[in-house]
Design a protein around this nucleic acid. Structure first.
Lengths: 199, 199, 199, 199
DNA sequence: AATGAATGAGCATTCATTCAT
DNA sequence: TATGAATGAATGCTCATTCAT
């Protein structure tokens, strides 16, 4: 693949993430993506076969961009294991706040029967070995509840932060709009932190 | 509205929930809904104005069907406050398992900018006063952590159960497929239960 | 089907015969047919499913219009069996001259793998019993060669007249342009007539 | 033209005959031909100007390959003039059976207004002088009907054999499927042979 | 209230052809 | 000579919505 082609491919992917995350597979328009990318529409089919193929590639591209466990955080945790939950939650919250396309693409992908996740195989969020180590250290030093497994711990924090961002619209209508204020967010972080911390 | 019209309206709504929850607003077809409902397409426009209007009505219909806090569970909790988290989590899990249209409609609605949630106003899940009472009882009797607020407690359990069902597809590819086995589900419930229970 | 729909259907079919016979399945444009018919393009899909379905219906419509063995000719032959070949050849020639869409649609259909001829089943050219009678009479009275079967006789005359019209373009380049003059046509008819007539 | 170019040209032509004879001008895809030929698409435009030009060249190539009057047959006829019709018919039948691309390319060319036959000029089936001689011999020796001209004789046999192969699909649906059995083919050859033979 | 017919804008995808290297 | 990249105009088909009865 020539240099020019690589650039074209990249422009398409960026536009695709933009359009797909906003409107989903069915809502997105191939024309729109081509225009946004400033690229001939046919190139999309040449590089990604079809709309679905482009979505899958766009999803993979989003995953590739996101770093779930930044080494900076791991260092911080190692230094002060007590803060593990707080740090992790703030990281996750930040990821979602800065990359709304992440939860959106995830949500679209989960709702759609036809998208294959094959491309994710190579990229998937492997829990960083370093972080896992930090988790066990926190449990060993008695600052994190022992009853919970590593997987369920990660899962819970992901669930809470994902849900917080993905369901804001309905939650503020049905449960409480308070969650989505500065204070609400703070309170939640604090409480969840205490929950997992050993009293 | 005549009796016949009411029946037609109901048939449309059922078909709409079915189609919308499966395919989303953009993926659903008005023709498909009309056919599924065994009703002339034009009736949809007569009763619900347009596709979006129908979606909003369908979303409201789903909410109206779901009972988040069954009185049976409230009684159980009152009788044995220690089991509050376990009972609630099992309830939520069951709701999602039996009504996948619930999380799906929620997800579609949250992803879409144009759907109005006005119709939810009248129906929204108001936390049953009874349940709130049970929650405070559990805290007072010392079987539930005191640091967490009622809202954040509900929120957390909703988040975990929602996320569990809505993101299964990507999670089993990226985090672990173990979650979605019988054992995985049990372990999670137990651990979350202990987490919120006072040690 | 309402009267209005019947009219629309018929307009589509006429335009389809026109366009398909001229350009073939791949060459024809659905848009072109809709425009020629003065009808909304979507109606084509409503009534004929797709382009192929429309072609098949158009082919059937052409067959339905053509009368291979006009009763007038049968009467003439009965009256003067000696002229059977001449009459038949002139009939076939006239059909092809007046209905070029006949050989053209046949040719397109034979070249295309995907067209089904199911619709022809109901219409297909059944040799008129009357004409078959005339044929045997001619053979019995000794004015038609006995060695040839009814089927092969019809086949031969069809082949010659079809080929004459369908392959004119290449034949006048490769064999001789003489065939397609008035004299050439006359000579051919006369000679074929004599060929089948008993000397 | 370099040797390499000649090879490329030939590969393109072969693929073109293959694709065009199967799908016609409108049905064929330049991409498909390039792929089949294992050649860069652009070469097609360099050597044949455009799709139509390629078709015309492919048609000419098919004609160049076919030998209508093999000298072997001419010898046989000279040796036994009585068998002229039978030999010719079997030759034609064999050509069509072995080279379906022949009647197909002819049919596509005749149906299409835009193809020019200029390239055929140089190649066209000139009746071999030898065969014409054989024909007259047969007539003189009284084993072939005298009433038919050379041109009409050839024409008739070509018509029958071409039609037999080109219209099999519709004929077996509308007239009789019997023609296309081994027996049917034999009977036809025999009868046509007798028809032209002097009784 | 209900339905069959109709519409126009749109949509994913394709294709012959040209450009740039 | 040869090739990968790019283009713009279609092309078959669909869909939400409205009309007429």
């Amino acid at each position: 693949m020539q240099e020019r082609a690589k650039i074209t491919r990249k422009k398409i992917l960026q536009a695709a993430v933009n359009e797909f995350s906003a409107k989903g597979i069915d809502g997105a328009r191939v024309d729109g993506i081509a225009t946004k990318a400033g690229v001939n529409k046919q190139r999309i089919y040449a590089y990604f076969k079809n709309k679905n193929g482009l979505f899958e590639a766009a999803l993979a591209a989003v995953f590739a961009e996101i770093s779930i466990f930044p080494s900076k955080s791991i260092n911080e945790i190692m230094h002060c294991p007590k803060r593990i939950t707080e740090i992790l939650m703030r990281d996750f919250m930040k990821i979602h706040a800065n990359h709304p396309e992440f939860w959106r693409m995830l949500a679209w992908a989960n709702l759609n029967d036809e998208v294959s996740l094959n491309l994710l195989r190579g990229i998937c969020i492997r829990e960083d070995a370093g972080f896992r180590e930090a988790f066990y250290t926190a449990q060993r030093t008695g600052v994190l509840v022992r009853e919970i497994s590593y997987e369920n711990y990660i899962f819970s924090l992901m669930a809470i932060t994902f849900f917080y961002h993905s369901n804001g619209k309905t939650l503020s209508q049905t449960l409480s709009p308070e969650f989505f204020t500065e204070n609400g967010r703070e309170a939640m972080t604090t409480q969840i932190n205490m929950l997992f911390g050993k009293v």
